[in-house]
Structure formats: structure tokens, C-alpha cells
Simulated assay, not measured.
Amino acid sequence: MTTASGLPAIRESVQLAVQEAPGGSPALVALAEAAVEHYALNYSKHPPAVLLTEVRETRILLSTATAAANPEIAQGLRRQVGWLSALLGNLAYHLDDRAGARTHLTLAGALGESTQEGALTAWASGALAMVATARHDWEHARRHAEYGLQHAPEGLRRAQLLGWALLPTLAATQRGPEADDVISESDEIMCSAVELPGRFGYDRAEHRLHVAEAHLALERYDRAGDVARASVDAAPPDTPAWAAATLVLALAEAHDAPDQAATRALDVLDRIPPSRLRATARSRLTRLGHLLGTSTVNSATELAERLRTLPAPIRADGTAA
């Protein structure tokens, strides 16, 4: 668990350690690893804009120490700078800054390769595929996913790259048989894999979310709904994972049960503050609003009004709302 005051305390500890050993030390490398773990495990507990500030400041501190460290210590610090860059890329994406996301994730991937951290290279490639998919750049999305798969360790990491990175682009381009093959392989891995928590981890709730979205893209609404319900059931209530699965379920229901779909979306808006609504959730809400645009049920009308007045997470001057 963490608290709002506990979050900056991590950065302050890194700052004190850098002051203690400006040229780096094994203890600073260990502390950097612990800081990355803390940010990754508590990623969903803080508004993205708040966490981005803390991760950025910590990366600056470690980068300063890296420049003065001996080669062995510098290698360890650069590896953690790479993981922090990966976090910054994901945070930028969740704040709807896709260009910023690409910048940070490209750096993360490069540092993963130069420090021979295969898991980082694979994860950054998967995240780059996610960003490319969001802008409908299917060719680059598939390239990033396949590159990530070349570096991903077997087991859970492979299932993650299959479900999170490769499957969305196959489904979006209507390659149903290939998508089904990916679903089968990744499902088989997930049956025996040990789940990993945190932003860099992967679990059954997230996997089912990606499978449900693939079925949705392939217009298999009943199957999408069934898998999305399983994702909702597996996700902790009132978390970003729960919100994502609930909205995918609503999208699957929109065609045949518009009132139920709109009610689910309203429940998400009631339970998740605007500052904690990720860009991915906002995108799903927008898609749902368009699908229900001609519906006359009261819940759909209310949803349209709530979406119209939903404040942005970042103001026009760049400050967090």
C-alpha cells in the first residue's frame, strides 16, 4: 500500500542517496530498483499526472548520478532509468500525449538493448505497439509487437506481448484466424502462468480485457461480452482495470442493450474521479457515446450530458486539473 505522502517520499530517498554517493554506488542501484518497483506496483493508485511528476524527478536524479558513475554502476543505473522512461511513456499515453509516449518508450527500448535488459526491450516494444494501434498505424503496431516478441522471455512475458501488443492489431485489421491463433496460444500460457502485479506485470483480468476487445473489433459481441464479464469479475473494484473491463462490456452490450450499456458507463463516471480517468477509458466512453447517440433511453441521454461536461485531466495551460 502507499499514500499520497508516501509517493514523494520515494523520490526524496533517492535524492538523499544521490547526495550521499554523487558518483553512484551499489546501494544507489538497489534503491533505484526499489523505486521502480514501488512506482510500478502503485501505478494505478495515483492520478497519472501526479505520478508522472514524481517519476520524472526520480529519473533526473538517477541520470545525474549515472553521468559520474563507474561503468559497472552506470550500467545498473541506466537500466533503471530505462524502466523509469517506460513508466513515463505509459503515463504520457494515459494522459493522451501520444507523441510524448513514443519519445519516452523509444528511449526505454534503446536503454533496454544497450543494457541487455530483454524484458525492458520487450515491454517498451509492446507499449509502442499500443501507441501505434491507438493512432491506427497498423503496420508499425505489428512491427513493434513482433520485435517485442523476439526479446520477450517465454511464459508470461510472451503471453503479455501476444495479448497486449499483437492481438489488437490483428483484430483491428480483421485478421480473424490469426487473431484466434494468438488467443489460443496466449490463453494456454495464461492457464499455467504465475501472474505478476503492477504496471510491468500481467494478469488474467488484463489478458481477458485484451481478448474481449479483440472480439469486439471482430464484431463478435456475445463473445466479447462474456470475456469482458470475466475481466470485470477478476479486476479489483473501482480500479482502472475494473473501469476498462466495465466499459468494454458496455461497448459489447450497446447494440442490443443500450440502457444497460449506458448505465454501466454512468456507474464508472460515478465511481472514478475525472483526474483518474485514463485516456483509454475516455476513448472507450467516447466510442460508447457515439454508439448510443441515437438512443432515446434516459440513461443514454444522461451519459451524453455527462460526457459533454466531463473535465479534461490536463488544462489548456498544461497544468493538471
Rank of each mutant, 00 (worst) to 15 (best):
T64E: 15
T309W: 00
G293Q: 06
A30C: 13
Y202V: 10
E37V: 09
D187G: 05
L269K: 05
R11H: 03
T309S: 12
E54R: 08
G76V: 12
D259K: 06
V232C: 01
S295N: 14
I189W: 00
R271I: 13
H140R: 12
L41M: 06
L84R: 02
A243I: 08
A129C: 03
Q19I: 14
T173F: 01
A252P: 10
E72V: 15
S283Q: 07
D226L: 09
D259Y: 01
R278V: 09
T133C: 14
A21H: 11
P168D: 15
T115Y: 01
G201C: 07
N298R: 04
L105V: 05
P240K: 02
A129T: 07
A27M: 10
G100K: 03
P311W: 01
P22A: 15
H94M: 04
T121Y: 01
W123P: 14
D317L: 10
L196K: 05
L170C: 15
L288Q: 06
L288S: 08
L269I: 10
T263W: 00
A244N: 13
L51W: 00
G112R: 03
A235H: 05
G89N: 05
H140Q: 14
L285A: 09
E54L: 09
L41G: 06
E305M: 09
G76Q: 06
A101Y: 01
A132Y: 00
A262K: 04
G109P: 11
V81L: 13
P237F: 00
D180Q: 09
